[in-house]
Design a protein around this nucleic acid. Structure first.
Lengths: 193, 193
DNA sequence: TCCAACACCATCCGATGCGGACTATACTGC
DNA sequence: GCAGTATAGTCCGCATCGGATGGTGTTGGA
């Protein structure tokens, strides 16, 4: 069976959380892993099932009420997680940003970057909130470490965007000529000959 | 018919490129849009077909040889592209980074950040190469603008990582206690009661 | 001249990602 | 014990994704 980054994300959260229902898992994902590894909400239900089938998680039914399933790491699951985390192979990081796509398509960068500044400012505050919630908990050290990376990253972006937006340089302003046709140069991005 | 960010990515590249085969499209995507909006190679074949069916692209068969298909923007396609680019709605930016995921899982941050420093350094050089290839081409202004954003972004990351790696602080070092179990606090990331 | 080898180009397939819409269950105040 | 709301979970259909494979043209060497 093939384990994806998403599989390890689920294992990690379960490791930090202890036995949890899919819903617990979903909540925890939303305030942690989501920030650097997007996961759709349905995965919080589908993935544990797959992992349990592979023997990496144990399942236990709640005895009363909703009789929800409680998933927990097995020893095998813990081993798989540690092996992956200590391995040196890293898939390349990805960014997906519709704003840059619009700039590529010819939109005026200014309002887009201003929008992004607002967004990243909010995100920074959000992450700082999470960070505060795990201070003084040595057992959450790795969660804290990832949050520190996240906060550092957002600070970087916010500072850069803020200084750009403030000075609103014309050097990177929107192109006045939107007819991109006509290039026949030797660049990497070139028209057919 | 529903247009995704990927649809607009294809339209944008076709707009910059002029009439192109799926393969041309794939090549162009790889050195431009890929850097801020990941697209699998098969999409370069599947998406134009969908867009053509929706009337946003025209199709023309090569008369000789492989008789490949040449796709080009229709007026309708150009309008759709402009409308989207000038609209103010932006989906939130996403980052997907297995390195941070590993740090979250308890891995030692140091080697991961060093790996990332190398990766971003290469990426920065790559983007600067693309940038050079479009200098002095006013019809490529928007491509250049997006590259400037990309270069600025990578520079930011490289600088930050470099200074971090150099000083290798212990404040964010790997957690020595990996047994994350036991937390029963009131943080956002908490165990079941 | 012809063939082998390679580079280029394209499609297929199964698995997973993805999110909207919907359903079901529990809690809360009255 | 009921209405309304918050919580919890499922379903469905389509898009994404990448590995694998299969064609097609080109090049160079005997």
């Amino acid at each position: 069976m093939r384990l994806s980054g998403t599989s390890y994300a689920v294992l990690s959260v379960l490791d930090a959380l202890g036995p949890a229902t899919p819903y617990d898992l979903k909540q925890a994902l939303e305030v942690s892993v989501q920030n650097f590894w997007p996961i759709p909400h349905t995965t919080a239900y589908a993935e544990p099932e797959r992992l349990a089938k592979a023997g990496l998680l144990s399942v236990e039914q709640e005895p009363s009420g909703r009789r929800r399933k409680l998933y927990a790491l097995t020893d095998e699951g813990r081993t798989a997680l540690r092996d992956w985390a200590s391995g040196t192979k890293l898939s390349p990081p990805q960014v997906r940003d519709e704003g840059v796509l619009k700039i590529f398509a010819g939109a005026d960068p200014q309002p887009i970057l201003e929008d992004r500044l607002r967004w990243h400012t909010h995100k920074l505050a959000e992450l700082e909130g999470y960070l505060e919630a795990v201070t003084g908990k040595p057992e959450m050290a790795s969660v804290r470490a990832s949050l520190l990376v996240g906060v550092g990253y957002e600070k970087l972006i916010v500072d850069a965007l803020a200084s750009y937006v403030r000075s609103a340089q014309t050097a990177t302003a929107a192109p006045t000529d939107q007819s991109l046709a006509g290039s026949a140069g030797s660049g990497k991005l070139r028209r057919r000959s």
